[in-house]
């Protein structure tokens, strides 16, 4: 029995699952927007702006989800300020501490990017004029993009830096969550952009192409994750394994990938269908990863597994 099985589950359930999902989409949307901004054409701007809006809303919702999950929510600021000394609270070796600061900074940059985008579209008229200058936009895009990558990946690292089954048994979780954040973010942007007449065919095509290759990488990462789990993979000899194989890998990665490659031609609106499946798969990935581990605990002197 792996040593990680002799521990207690932290009860990180639905609020955290939702946070991992939404935070991933927020981080992923920002870095996709950054890449499109830096590498794309001016006609990609609508998608770039959309990415910033999604990132900002996602960051706000993420913060709220994390606060609601605390058993003493009004003490959320203890993550940032030492409550009994008033000094800054930061532990570089503790992902939850780094992540608290990371999310705060990400929210700030996503807010600036969203403000700049809203000014550009003339949705708002307030705010300093410099937010629409190209120098400002570029700095925000680069710093926010880096923070986006961080937000998308640190959640997996946070799970690994514990002593819990599955989470602490593979070094792949951070990478897997980051890649899944990219695929779910691209899927979100595809779905939202199609509803906005401003996004053009070429931008959408790029997103679909990005999502397709991300799914290929995700498939590789998930296989590597399962292999590196070793003996801890026994947790998946349960309903969670079925959900992982059928829901996450089958319906959430392989099927949309097959659609993207044109191997499946059944449905008329394939891009929408594929994006929907990717989102569902990404959500289920977090459900399976968290809840399968949550079910392992000690009772008396025995380890109980799902």
């Amino acid at each position: 029995m792996p040593d990680t099985f002799f521990t207690t589950p932290p009860d990180w359930q639905w609020w955290i699952i939702l946070y991992f999902f939404i935070g991933g989409i927020a981080g992923g949307s920002f870095f996709i927007a950054t890449l499109l901004y830096l590498l794309g054409r001016p006609s990609d701007r609508p998608v770039v702006r959309l990415g910033y809006y999604v990132a900002f809303i996602g960051a706000v919702v993420s913060g709220l989800l994390l606060i609601v999950d605390l058993h003493r929510p009004f003490r959320f600021w203890h993550m940032l300020v030492e409550s009994n000394t008033g000094q800054l609270m930061f532990k570089s070796w503790t992902p939850m501490s780094v992540g608290s600061w990371g999310l705060l900074l990400f929210g700030l940059f996503a807010g600036l990017a969203a403000l700049s985008a809203a000014r550009e579209e003339e949705r708002v008229r307030w705010g300093p004029a410099f937010v629409v200058t190209s120098g400002f936009r570029t700095v925000v895009a680069i710093v926010g993009g880096i923070l986006g990558f961080f937000l998308a990946g640190y959640t997996g690292v946070l799970l690994s830096v514990t002593n819990r089954p599955v989470w602490a048994d593979s070094p792949m979780l951070g990478a897997l969550f980051l890649i899944s954040a990219a695929s779910t973010a691209a899927a979100t942007l595809i779905l939202l952009a199609r509803r906005r007449s401003t996004a053009d065919t070429v931008s959408l095509g790029k997103l679909a192409e990005f999502d397709k290759w991300t799914l290929v990488v995700e498939l590789v990462a998930i296989v590597a994750f399962l292999i590196t789990l070793g003996a801890a993979a026994r947790v998946f000899l349960s309903v969670w394994g079925v959900l992982l194989v059928v829901g996450v890998i089958g319906a959430g990665i392989v099927l949309p990938l097959a659609m993207g490659l044109g191997w499946v031609k059944r449905w008329t609106d394939r891009p929408v269908m594929a994006a929907g499946l990717v989102l569902m798969g990404g959500f289920l990935l977090r459900v399976v990863t968290l809840l399968s581990s949550e079910q392992v605990h000690i009772a008396g002197s025995r380890v109980i597994t799902p």
Partner: peptide, 26 residues
Amino acid sequence: NLASSTVGSTIGAAVMGAVGLVTLRK
């Protein structure tokens, strides 16, 4: 697990950056 997991995520980020570079460019 901090170092190994951080390295894993950084490689993941680099791969995603590369995928973006190829698919999202002009």
